[in-house]
Design a protein around this nucleic acid. Structure first.
Lengths: 188, 188, 188, 188
DNA sequence: CATGAATGAGAATTCATTCAT
DNA sequence: GATGAATGAATTCTCATTCAT
């Protein structure tokens, strides 16, 4: 695999994700993506078998990036409060820093055909391992995995998705969310 | 002159929503919808100016149905615990009873072009009035509106959206969620 | 026939002719015309059997308006020079005063299907009678009808059609044309 | 990669021009043209961005063919009489030999949107250079360019356009026209 | 007479994809 | 590997026309 090509495929991915942020998942087409990526439409078929397969593959590849991002923020000697704050804020920060990937992943997850193939919870397995550790140490309460993922990430993602409709005091809401979730999940 | 066939427009709406559940928002087309609704494709343009406008208009019309549904479950003399349980479970029940509308609304809310025009929080204003009452009575804590909507509805919606990936013990997760949220929001 | 209706038909005609000036004969449609005329598309079918028939009928009705216009300018005791000047200038004036009708008639005359049904020369029969009188009086040379119509009207119409591309000194060209044609057609 | 098939584009052009002769400029459609040219409708969009652009481009390309044709008939040592006769008859001959191009160009010239973009006089610049030479030599009178083009070509084109309505003695009219124009333009 | 509703047919255009180079 | 050419199928949407009211 030559460097040049790697770059080309990267441009294709970026083009697709950028366009989906701009036009929505229902607004993309192979030729639009090709134009945005600066390659011929035919070139896309060198890397992907079909549009369908391209979407799925890139979704699969990107789906756990948000979780990967927050995991990088986490430090193993954090206490419970910090852990939760880091996870929640990390999720929000990712949605700002990588708006297009955030939106892409969110859109794909709601799309029935795609979400069947990539389950959100599976993407969060690293985070879950971490949470299990904190549960074992008696810091976090013993809620089940699904409940944990739901309560930690769903509200902040909703906030992030609606960010532009907020006046600007999103910081305040974020603080509240962090506080709430700490209260629910932490022992004492 | 013939009167506008109310039933026909209803069939168009239903067809669109049903198809979006099946094929995703990126998988619908005017002719598919027309066929499903049993009308001519041209007829759709009697009711809507364009595909875009049709999507937006129906989205706007349906966006608050989930909130309307839970409001019907609520009883004004409920205590705080029951209120929260009813809101959360109501949201989940709606996603089962009206799977296609739930999925439609969720998909639209993630789509950038559409979500710009219909803000999720606006749809929940009746719910918010209710929550304000409970706040005034000192039953609910004084969190801000955005945080309330986020914590009450986002997790359960995520659960509902991933329902099929759950073995079947979704009841357990739902119980946990209800319990968590009660703990966060209720005073003592 | 009620007054109101007469007015409605008139509006339809005007709308069609106006639109053909703006969009070209290939750019009109029943619904555009209806909207422009402020009537329902169905109403047009009260007055005309089909689009085809409408075009033909209105063309037939308007085709000799330019000739009618110049005939009104003509005075029976004009001398030869004045006659020619009046005919040529009249034609030009009509193209300015009734730009939309001028363009409409010109476009129809070039359109093979339409021009088959309405021959330009037939429209000029009144003018020809007049010219015959001046020929009998020995004022005009004995050219054949076709040649007369061609030499008197074709150049000025070309000038009129290209009017907007002329800097503005169309007056000068018009003077020259009048002079030329006088020279050709007048005896002595 | 396959090379652009020059022949294919040629067939598209021919198909369009032929169809416009048969059905009028308001009677063509991309699919009709494609069928006539023996290509897929989509192929037309490989060569032209839109129907509008196709029309304009082909019009621009063909607009001076009639003038090019008559220029080929002209011989530089002709006297004034022959020059005029050749120009006028050449124009007529072209309309017979290349009926479809003649009709196409005439229709486009009357169409407001198209004629804005391609001015008839610009197409005749070679002819004008020639006429200027004859003017300098004192053979032709000093009329302005517009008047020359108008008087030489407009009448014969009108005759050509109405050719089919003439009994058949078009030769006679043509003779008259030639004679008239010689009389106007030649010195002595 | 007038018209909103309805539609089959067809419009222009785009799509995803293939293929020869 | 990369791509311009090519296209059948599908897209959105408009058209001319009919009809019940």
């Amino acid at each position: 695999m030559r460097l040049k090509d790697e770059d080309k495929q990267q441009r294709i991915k970026k083009a697709m994700v950028d366009l989906i942020l701009r036009d929505g998942i229902d607004g993309i087409s192979i030729s639009k993506i090709a134009k945005e990526a600066g390659v011929s439409a035919a070139t896309i078929y060198v890397y992907y078998e079909s549009k369908e397969e391209m979407l799925t593959e890139i979704f699969r590849e990107y789906a756990d990036l948000p979780y990967g991002y927050v995991m990088q923020q986490v430090n193993s000697d954090m206490d419970g409060r910090d852990l939760i704050e880091t996870l929640v804020r990390g999720c929000y920060d990712f949605s700002i820093e990588h708006e297009e990937i955030f939106s892409f992943v969110e859109q794909c997850h709601r799309c029935p055909t795609l979400s069947e193939q990539v389950c959100d919870k599976d993407c969060s397995c690293d985070v879950l391992s971490l949470l299990h550790q904190y549960q074992k140490m008696g810091i976090l309460k013993q809620y089940s995995d699904w409940s944990l993922v739901a309560i930690i990430f769903a509200p902040v993602r909703w906030l992030a998705a609606n960010r532009k409709a907020l006046s600007s005091n999103s910081e305040k809401y974020l603080d509240e969310l962090v506080y709430m979730i700490q209260k629910v999940l932490l022992n004492d």
